[in-house]
Structures are given as C-alpha cells and as structure tokens.
C-alpha cells in the first residue's frame, strides 16, 4: 500500500435528511487515520448505515464533506470510490450468477483487465476458502460462504479502505471468529478497516478506535482503552458453593441474589475483588467461580446511549 498522511476517511459536518423528513445525521465529524481498525457503533436507526451509505455513494448527503485519503467525494467521486471496498449488511449479489463471475465482474467495474481480474479473483477466492466453489451458483452457498463471497468481492480491487456493515450479523460463533481473524489479517497488511456492528464484543475484540453514534450525532469518539477506562463499575456473577443466607450483607457493594447459589455484585473500579471475597468468607460463603456479567463495552454503550437519550428528553 502507498503510504499516505491523509486520513483514510474524513467526514466534516455531514448531514442527511431523508425525503420523508427523517433526520438521520445531524452534522457529524469523523476522522479515521490510515491503518486504523475503527468501530462505528450505535443502536438501530442511529445513523450508522446512512453514514456508510453516503461514504460509498449509495445515499446522497444533504450537506457536509467526505474525503477518503484526501480525495473529495464531490470533486472526484470515481477517484474516491477506487479507494473503498464495501461489504454490505445484506447479500446484494446476483443469486443466479456463479461465484467467480460475481467477483470478476466487480474487478471489471473497477477497470481491471480480464487477466489481472482473473488472478485477483483466484487470490481472494482462495483466501476466503471459496475457490473450490468458484463455479457454483451464488444461491447455492451457505450463509457464511455468501458473506465471505461479499468480502472477496470487496477486496478484489485491493481497496485501501474496507468498510463492513454488520459483517457477522446472523452468523454462527465459529464463522464469526473466522471472520474476525480474517479482518485482523487484512488490517495487519495495511488496509484501514471500518466496521459497524451490533455485537459490542466484536468491536471490543477487533477495534482500536471506537465512535458511538446515536440519534444522528457522534456521542463518543475515542480509542478503545480510553473508552473502557470510563467504565466505573463492573458487574460480576459469582457461583456459590452453598446457598447464601437470605440476610447476606456485602457492605459497600451493590449486590443481588439471582438465586440462592448465584450472586451478582457491582464492583467499583477503585476497589478490589479481594475485599468482596473477604466479606463473603467472613459469612462462610465460598465462591466456586466468577465471571463478568456482560461485555464491558456493552455496559458503557448502554450507559452512554441511555444518558444521551435522557439528556435529549430533558432538553425537550
């Protein structure tokens, strides 16, 4: 990849109001450095897909500017599109065409002559484990294979920026993990990756930088470590050896008994788990095992989105 100092993606004051009056984006700013693994998170209808749609020319913007590697969407749309590969959320290839045809056609749309297009198609179909299926009709593929086909299609022109809209929605855990390692590999090779996802575990595992969008505004935009550092309390689930007494007291910690053998306890960040164990031990309660109740990022996400929602309600 050619080294570049321009941001992989630069969005300035981007707004979108649909014809029916729905305001999807309210002047968002985003900057994604080259080589980044960037997560764009948000609840349904927050504006993630609209943002991706505008960047990939599937949605027309109402106002604002979009640049990829310094190339402006308004001034050189073709130049900007060449930098980007898109893996959409829904299958959008011709179900009646063969796997190889679909990928080769995409290479052709990007101006690649048939010889190189054939080589690139083979390279990415092999990488995605689809080479043996190259002459199979796309409709015959399993859901996971279809998703890999879309990734191969997005990569065939070797874009510098790969955008994936919910790439693992509805796929099983095994395939999700395989997709993660594939995306990490692509990112390690220098391709900037932007991911939208509902699975916060996915964002936590993959992304180094996370932006959270809600009601068409960016409510958080920072690196993952800083974001997780904002999490003040973690909830642990403790499996107990024997039934806990009904009058169990864990002073200074919010806690609740889910059932006599399961205790949920909120541990503030500045306090130690050892204290909890000591308190329980004094009451002859032995802990067999413990685990995080939820994904850490998920808690933070819910807090952020709920807080902003309450602020918006209060403002109204």
């Amino acid at each position: 990849m050619m080294p570049t100092t321009n941001p992989a993606l630069e969005i300035r004051n981007l707004s979108k109001t649909y014809r029916d009056g729905t305001v999807a984006l309210q002047g968002i700013d985003l900057e994604v450095p080259p080589g980044e693994f960037f997560g764009l998170l948000g609840p349904n209808g927050a504006g993630k897909s609209t943002t991706i749609g505008i960047v990939t020319s599937l949605v027309t913007k109402s106002a604002g500017a979009v640049r990829a590697f310094g190339i402006d969407l308004d001034h050189d749309p073709a130049g900007m599109k060449r930098q980007i590969g898109l893996v959409p959320q829904e299958f959008n290839f011709n179900q009646f065409e063969q796997v190889q045809q679909i990928v080769m056609q995409q290479a052709g749309y990007y101006g690649m002559p048939r010889g190189p297009a054939r080589e690139q198609t083979e390279k990415y179909l092999r990488k995605m484990g689809l080479w043996e299926k190259r002459q199979t009709g796309a409709r015959m593929l399993s859901g996971g294979m279809k998703r890999r086909l879309m990734i191969a299609r997005a990569l065939v022109h070797e874009p510098q920026l790969l955008i994936l809209d919910e790439p693992t929605a509805g796929v099983d855990i095994e395939l999700r993990r395989a997709t993660w390692s594939l995306l990490e590999e692509i990112n390690d090779q220098g391709t900037t990756v932007i991911l939208t996802t509902h699975y916060l575990e996915e964002a936590e595992a993959l992304c180094r930088h996370i932006a959270i969008i809600d009601h068409g505004r960016i409510v958080e935009n920072t690196d993952k470590k800083s974001l997780l550092a904002k999490l003040n309390v973690e909830t642990f689930v403790l499996d107990l050896e024997t039934a806990a007494p009904e009058a169990l007291l864990v002073d200074g910690y919010a806690h609740r008994l889910v059932d006599p053998l399961t205790l949920e306890i909120d541990v503030p960040k500045e306090r130690s788990l050892n204290e909890v164990f000591a308190i329980l031990s004094r009451q002859h309660v032995n802990v067999l095992s413990l685990r995080n109740k939820a994904n850490r990022l998920e808690e933070l996400f819910v807090n952020l989105v709920e807080k902003k929602g309450q602020n918006a309600d209060a403002a109204e």
Binding site: M1, M2, A78, R82, Q83, Q101, Q105, G108, Y109, Y110, G111, M112, P113, P116, Q120, H157, E158, P159, Q160
Partner: peptide, 25 residues
C-alpha cells in the same frame, strides 16, 4: 501500478467496465 488505480487512462478503465456490463448482459 496499484490494483486500485485504473489501469492506463480512465477512459480505458471505463471501456473495461463497459465491456464487463456488456458481457454480463
């Protein structure tokens, strides 16, 4: 030449694109 750059001039890239759609159709 990078694969994500059009091969030759942009008219040639467009011609390849046109050829691709024609073959598909």
């Amino acid at each position: 030449m990078l694969p994500n750059e059009p091969s030759g001039s942009s008219w040639r890239a467009n011609l390849i694109g046109l050829q691709t759609i024609v073959i598909k159709e």
